[in-house]
Amino acid sequence: MLFFFVLPLLTTVVISFWRTESYTIIHDWNIDNYVVLLTKHTYLVFLGRSILMATAVTLISLIYSWPIAYFIAYAGGRYKLVLVLLTSAPFFTGIILRVTALQQIFGPIGIINTALINLGLKPINAFMYSNFASGMGLVYLWIPFMILAIYLSLLNFNFDLLEVAKVNGASPIKAFFEVTLPLNWIGTAVGIVLVFVPTLAASITPRFLGGVNGALFGNILAHQFGATGTWALGSAMGVVLFFVSIIAIFLVWKTVDLRRSGFTGGDI
């Protein structure tokens, strides 16, 4: 694990300080790659767009996942396992096939727009290769993680605590924000990270669902290793991506208060 996971990542960091010329890597220490990344307007725009997209996708997933995970954990009864597995099963069918399927529904000639045209109505522009479409695609791809993380947390949550809160005069909304959410915040935080990180690096979904302005950081990162062969710059972009992920994880982790989340230290 150390060898095949940590070492490659370190190599990437090293190469990001070298440079590539006509498809070969030249061992020549410099920080040009980073200067380019941090001063050239386009890269910053792509990075900003990726961060914005990842934040939006994470928020939508979060808001949508909570009631669903809550419902399965609270009212699922003996069907809990089936219900939750049903939400995560599509995850296993692979990104590329799911994007293919999505294109047939929300794409420019997907079933929704074709139906509208056939009815003599105007097709919905938002489905024509837009950031909205790729955002929806990303929610589609990664929401299972969020649901699973919150659900697993809720499994260990004692719902009787809510009764206690109610007896003591808390409204349902107050009980949720003062009892349920804080006690399940670790699971929620894990869900947030598990959605945010892959979304930030997304390259396939925006490529097929996003439009001209839909390219994200992941796309141009992939481009450096494909068409242009500028591995050093690509590595630097990878490092930047990695650090943004780490910062995000750190920020989320800062919000976790172990004492308030009912963490006892022993279990697992």
Binding site: P8, L9, T12, P198, A201, L221, A222, S235, G238, S245
Partner: peptide, 15 residues
């Protein structure tokens, strides 16, 4: 789990 696939892909390619 917290590292994007594309990063795992390119870093092992480079390595």
């Amino acid at each position: 789990l917290f590292v994007a696939h594309i990063l795992i892909g390119i870093s092992s390619l480079i390595f």
